[in-house]
Nucleic acid binder design. Structure first.
Length: 296
DNA sequence: CCGATTACCTGCACGC
DNA sequence: TGCGTGCAGGTAATCG
């Protein structure tokens, strides 16, 4: 499920545990996820201190005091779980009984913080569409990240920027917004949500909102605003749910949002005054949800 | 340059 | 209850 906001929420959840901590034990419990683990995966990470936890699009980056940067992708079903030692645990008897090894726990990081606090970070991924790779240099130059487009966070993505990205594009808006080379981090859910907020049809030819007319300028501005706000709102929702989220079962990953259109086929359009209903169509083999009444 | 299709893998909801 | 079917938020490769 993870799109950019979920990955950012995971990053914020892991940050306090990982940043400044030393990886005292690393273990990959199978040879591969979507891709084989890098050569000497555990060996090269063990003993390293994590200096920073970053994110680019839907990728997490774990920076070390030396050696490669670890690039993690959650795929469709990946999640992290944090297990901390209870205060009454016997020192040294690390997670002996508490640590229940769940199915699909593929990677384990045992860490010790600068203060000497121990924790275990577990990567779980039933479908194994996730992956972990090494970037030997700057992660932005890694083939997996090099071609990514603009982040929809912050202010970089404005109407003019979006118009320049969509100019001359003949593909439907839905496909263009899912293209990671243009905007990095939007996925199937938030594309539907952003198009609904902007009142634009997912079937619209992308280039038609990138013209020089007043109307086109307004539409590209509206869509850029919709994208930024839907992402910002989702991150805020994730952040506010993070405490409870970690508290309940220790896992970080999916959290429930309420969506305006996603997975709401047949329901009334939530736009005030709109009498339309949400439809589900398939574009590029994937579900799109929209209201044909108010999205043109 | 496009879009559509398939593949990767497991889990789950659904209908019979 | 069990079984077959289809579907799932990710990226990438292949084919017309």
């Amino acid at each position: 499920m993870p799109e950019l906001p979920e990955v950012e929420t995971v990053r914020r959840g892991l940050q306090p545990v990982l940043e400044g901590a030393r990886l005292v034990h690393v273990e990959a419990r199978r040879p591969d996820l979507r891709f084989p683990f890098p050569e000497r995966f555990a060996k090269r990470l063990t003993g390293r201190t994590v200096t920073a936890l970053g994110r680019r699009a839907k990728y997490l980056t774990m920076h070390m005091d030396e050696g490669p940067v670890l690039i993690c992708h959650l795929g469709m079903s990946g999640s992290f779980r944090i297990e901390t030692a209870d205060a009454d645990d016997v020192p040294g008897a690390f997670h002996h009984e508490r640590s229940k090894s769940a199915a699909h726990d593929h990677v384990v990081f045992d860490v010790v913080s600068a203060k000497g606090e121990r924790a275990r970070v577990v990567f779980n991924d039933p479908r194994r569409f996730g992956f972990m790779l090494f970037a030997e240099g700057a992660p932005d130059t890694h083939p997996m990240l090099a071609g990514l487009g603009v982040e929809p966070t912050g202010n970089a993505l404005d109407g003019a920027m979006l118009a320049s990205l969509l100019k001359d594009r003949r593909s439907p808006l839905k496909a263009a917004l899912l293209d990671q080379r243009l905007i990095a981090g939007l996925g199937n859910i938030y594309v539907s949500e952003a198009l609904w907020r902007a009142g634009l049809s997912p079937l619209r030819e992308a280039g038609t909102i990138a013209g020089s007319t007043k109307k086109a300028k307004q539409q590209s501005e509206d869509l850029a605003q919709a994208i930024r706000s839907v992402i910002a709102d989702a991150i805020a929702a994730g952040g506010s749910s993070l405490r409870d989220y970690v508290h309940t079962d220790g896992s970080l990953g999916y959290f429930q949002h309420s969506f305006a259109v996603y997975d709401r086929e047949g329901e009334s359009c939530p736009k005030p005054g709109c009498r339309g209903h949400i439809e589900r169509i398939v574009q590029s083999g994937r579900s799109t949800f929209y209201c044909r009444t108010c999205q043109r």
